[in-house]
C-alpha cells in the first residue's frame, strides 16, 4: 500500500501531460474538423477535392509517422522549415489528424439533414450562414454525438503515442517505473487512470445525449 504512494506522484505527473495533450487536441480539432467538413461540402470541386486529399493523407498514414515527420522532418522542408519543440509538435500532429476524422463525421451528419430543412429556412429568408448556424448544425450535433464520443475516447488512449517524442505521458511514466522496480503494479495504476478518464467522458456524452433527447426527429 505504501508503494502506491510512491507510485502516484510520477504517474499523476504523466496523467497531467496526457490530459493536456487530450484537451488541447480536442479544442483545436473539433472546430478545425467542422471547417474542413464545410469546405468538403463546398460547391467548388477544387476546394472539395483538396480537402478530400487532405483527409486521405491524414487518415491514410499512421499518426505516429505524422508526429515524427512534424518533429524531425519539418525543419528541413524548404521554405516552411520550422523547428517545433516536442509538445507543440505533438499537438499539431494530433490536431491535424483528429480534425480529418471529425471532418468526416461532421460531413456525414450535415448530409443526413433533410433537404426540406434548407428549403424551409430559405423560404423564410435565412442566408446560408444563418441556415447552418441556427437550423442545420444544432441538429447535426445530436446526430454525431455517438461517433464523436467514440473518437474522443480513442484520443485519450492515442495520446500514449507521444512517447516517441520523448514526452513523459502516463504510459511512459508507468513503463519507466516498471523497468526500474521490476513490478507490473504501475501498469495497473495507469490502466485505472485511463479507465477513469474514459468513464468521465462516457458519462459526459451520455449526459449530452440525454439533453438532446428532449426532441425526436
Amino acid at each position: 500500500m505504501d508503494y502506491l504512494w510512491v507510485l502516484l506522484p510520477p504517474l499523476l505527473q504523466g496523467a497531467g501531460v496526457t490530459l493536456q495533450v487530450f484537451f488541447i487536441t480536442l479544442v483545436l480539432s473539433l472546430p478545425l474538423g467542422l471547417a474542413l467538413a464545410l469546405l468538403r461540402l463546398s460547391r467548388s470541386a477544387s476546394v472539395s477535392g483538396l480537402v478530400n486529399g487532405y483527409i486521405w493523407l491524414m487518415r491514410g498514414t499512421p499518426l505516429m509517422l505524422q508526429m515524427l515527420f512534424i518533429y524531425f522532418a519539418l525543419p528541413f522542408v524548404p521554405y516552411v522549415g520550422i523547428r517545433l519543440p516536442s509538445f507543440p509538435a505533438a499537438i499539431v500532429a494530433f490536431s491535424l489528424n483528429y480534425a480529418a476524422y471529425f471532418a468526416e463525421i461532421f460531413r456525414g451528419g450535415i448530409q443526413s439533414i433533410d433537404r426540406g430543412q434548407y428549403e424551409a429556412a430559405k423560404a423564410l429568408g435565412f442566408s446560408y450562414a444563418q441556415t447552418m448556424r441556427r437550423i442545420v448544425l444544432p441538429q447535426v450535433v445530436k446526430r454525431v454525438l455517438a461517433p464523436v464520443s467514440n473518437e474522443t475516447i480513442t484520443l485519450v488512449k492515442d495520446t500514449s503515442l507521444i512517447y516517441v517524442l520523448a514526452m513523459n505521458d502516463l504510459l511512459r511514466a508507468a513503463r519507466g517505473i516498471v523497468q526500474r522496480d521490476f513490478t507490473t503494479m504501475p501498469f495497473i495504476v495507469a490502466a485505472v487512470f485511463y479507465l477513469l478518464m474514459t468513464l468521465m467522458l462516457t458519462v459526459g456524452f451520455q449526459w449530452l445525449e440525454k439533453k438532446y433527447s428532449v426532441y425526436d426527429e
Binding site: G125, S127, Q139
Partner: peptide
C-alpha cells in the same frame, strides 16, 4: 433576392418544421 422572396411565405407538403 432574399429580401424580395421574403414577401412570400411558403407552406410545404412535408411541413418541414424545425424538429429541434
Amino acid at each position: 433576392a432574399r429580401r424580395i422572396c421574403r414577401r412570400m411565405g411558403m407552406v410545404f407538403q412535408q411541413f418541414n418544421l424545425f424538429p429541434h
